[in-house]
Every structure is written in structure tokens, then in C-alpha cells.
Write a protein that binds this DNA or RNA. Structure first.
Lengths: 202, 202
DNA sequence: AAACAGGTATACCGAGTAGTATATTTTTAA
DNA sequence: TTAAAAATATACTACTCGGTATACCTGTTT
């Protein structure tokens, strides 16, 4: 059954890439761990690079599911949903086997902006940004662009810091900071004419 | 002149590692670019790994100088100094040839927490955190630990996001967020007994 | 039974990897 | 000037890398 071997390969590669890195994990190591023949990998995916892209696609799907389950099970107040996200991040960071964000890793290991892997990472992060923008748009009195981008920076910072320091504490501080940003937004709604200038997104 | 070749090798390797990655840059590529013989590298540094550690040492030195010049030339008010840091980050991100944080890259390419390269990255980041803590301690009415860690997350988030999106805009949003965190701290100084619990640093 | 498809095993390719050995030349300092 | 130190070129080891070629096996579907 082709599709099962294929999915298994993607799942195994996803875990290994995330644990050790894209460059550091060889095709040989993947087929060993997956228990399949070398040619099975190259018939299902033309190259290691294509396999990497497939693992990112799977990671993106799984992340969306996590995102929805982390947020939409909670109160319908956007402020509470946003804070629930950071609480869920803390749990995620503390999970056994969690090893950082595959997309940040991908963007760093493939730094060329037009590389297909780097591009996949950027597109995933843009999805996250637009999701946050949707949440921020429902916060009373807030500039949704500014608020969502600031929350996004806390999000990225927490991921990077937790991986670097090997501890989930950054998620808790990110939640505290988000709380303050939300409080500031609802306490001091800015007149539309005085909004800080918006920068272009990339 | 030994020390000159040695320094030259470190400088060349530092740039190449930062542009392309530690795994992706080979010893051959480094000696080609530096214009030295293969054995010159292996006599000055026992291995590629030792060369990597030396480039991180140099990066740390240069970063400290940048940090001081970005902050201490400005007003002695801590709030202004903190905001000056994020303004300087924007300039830094926009600088031709800037290619992200070598320490974040190092921690990702060498994910094992006890690896000498990962450890060097973590120690550098802890230096940054304690520097921020010193600044936050001078902000009236703020919990210095909470404030400095929250600023640190904005710092890391801005670096990661700017590299990922290939644009300096995250620094500007980080500055805006820092502004709000500072305003919240000075407007609502919390009684010492009610402080949020402090997490252990790693 | 025959044809087909997916998987496997094995051997192979050329290129690249980090690192070493050695003998020779260049540079520096006494 | 001479002796020590540093840098050189060249060749080499042993291994790993991504990727390919090919022959064979196994299960399913007509």
C-alpha cells in the first residue's frame, strides 16, 4: 500500500528533521529509521528536498489543528482566546519530545529568501500572522495590525527563547506581555487618524 | 604573522557561517575564501568546531560593542535607552549584509543542549538578558524581572521574524510593544507582595 | 495464468566531507 | 647571517553524501 509507506516516511522524517536538523539528517538515516528501502523514498519523493517540503506541509496541517484546538475551545472573547494561545504554547513547550518550530529551523537552514524551503516557512508564518490579525480585529479599541504584529513577535520570541534555553518559561512571560498589550489597547483606543504608520508585510 | 592569519580566518568564517550556515559551509570553502592553506586552519584551530566557537566569541565581542554604542550614547533615562535599543535594531536589520543572529542559528544547528556550540549561544543570550535586567531595574515602578524578560522576548522575536520575512519591520513593532510595556509598568506599579511568580532562568 | 504495480536488495556513481602527513618554502627574530 | 617559527602545496585517508541503475520479489487485479 503505497500511501501508507509514503505517510510513514513523512512522519519519520518530520520527527528526525525537527530533532536534529535538515542538513544533519541524511537520507540513509531516514530510511534506516523508517525501515524502508532506499528506492521507496526516491520513488515517492524525487529528492530529499521534496521530502523536506512534504514534512513542512504535514507540520503546517498539524499546527493548524493545534492552533484551533488551543483557541476555539475557549471563551469567545478574543482577549481570552489570545491569552489561551500563550497558555497552550506553554503546554506545548513542556511536552516531551517538543523540539522547537520546524519553520524557524527551515528558514535558518535555508536562508536564501527564494529557496523553496525558506518560502514554505515564510508562508506558514504569514498564515499565523493573518490568524492573529483576525483575533486582534475583534479586540475593542485596538489597532488590529499593530496589535497582531506585536503579538506575533511575542509568539516568535517565545518559541525561539524556549528552544534556546530549553525551558517553557518564555511562554509564560509572553502571556504576561500579551495581557499588558491587550489592556493598553482597550484602555487607550487610538483615534483612526493618529494610527502609527503601517509597514508592508513580506 | 600568525595572529593576523588567525584573525582573518575567524572573520571570514564568521561571515560565511552567518550567510550560509555552519553545516552548509565546508572547511574547503573557508580556506578558499580566506586564501590560506588548509593546514593553516588546522594548526590555528584543531577542528571546524573550534573555529565555530571562535567565530561565536568574536560575534559576542562585536555584539557587546554594538549594544553599548546603541544604548549608552542616548539619554540616561532607562526608558529611552530601551527604546533606543529597538530603534538600533531596526537600523541593524536594514544594514546591507546583515544576515540574522549567529547565536540563534547556532542553537538551532546544534540543538543538543550540552553541545559546546549550543552552550555558547545560550551563554550569550543570558548575557543579553542580564543586560536588559539591569536596564529594567532602573525603570520606576516596574518588576525588573518580568519587564526584562518580556523585552527579551520582543528582542528575540524581532530578530527571528526579520530574518524569516527578510525585512526590518519587526523591529519597529517590537519598539511599539516595548513602549506599551514601559507605559504599563510606570502607570501601574505593582505592590511587591502581588508580583507574578518568577520562573527560573536557564 | 498473465500482466501490472509497488516494494526490496544490492551495488554503484561522482562528488564532497573533516582531518592528517610530509616535505618545502617563506617569514620572523636573535 | 642564521636558526626557529609559521605558512605553504600536495597528496592522502576513510568516510559520507544525494542520487541512480537494475534485477528481483510479492501481492493484486483482470
Amino acid at each position: 500500500m503505497s500511501v501508507r509507506k509514503r505517510d510513514h516516511l513523512i512522519a519519520v522524517a518530520q520527527r528526525m528533521f525537527c530533532e536534529t536538523g535538515f542538513h544533519a539528517v541524511s537520507v540513509d538515516a531516514i530510511i534506516d529509521e523508517a525501515g524502508v528501502a532506499r528506492m521507496t523514498l526516491y520513488k515517492n519523493f524525487g529528492s530529499k528536498e521534496e521530502l523536506i517540503v512534504e514534512t513542512l506541509r504535514r507540520e503546517d496541517t498539524m499546527f493548524r489543528q493545534w492552533l484551533v484546538s488551543a483557541i476555539e475551545a475557549h471563551s469567545s472573547r478574543s482577549e481570552d482566546r489570545i491569552l489561551a494561545l500563550f497558555k497552550a504554547m506553554h503546554d506545548r513547550f513542556a511536552t516531551e519530545g517538543y523540539c522547537g518550530c520546524a519553520f524557524i529551523r527551515a528558514s535558518i537552514e535555508y536562508p536564501a529568501p527564494n529557496h523553496v524551503v525558506h518560502r514554505a516557512a515564510r508562508e506558514h508564518k504569514n498564515m499565523v500572522r493573518s490568524y492573529l490579525r483576525g483575533l486582534a480585529a475583534e479586540v475593542e479599541g485596538a489597532d488590529p495590525v499593530a496589535l497582531s504584529e506585536q503579538l506575533y513577535l511575542l509568539f516568535e520570541g517565545a518559541i525561539t527563547a524556549s528552544q534556546l534555553h530549553g525551558d517553557p518559561w518564555p511562554a509564560e512571560y509572553a502571556r504576561q506581555a500579551a495581557e499588558k498589550l491587550l489592556a493598553a489597547a482597550s484602555l487607550a483606543p487610538q483615534p483612526a487618524a493618529k494610527r502609527t504608520k503601517v509597514h508592508r508585510a513580506t
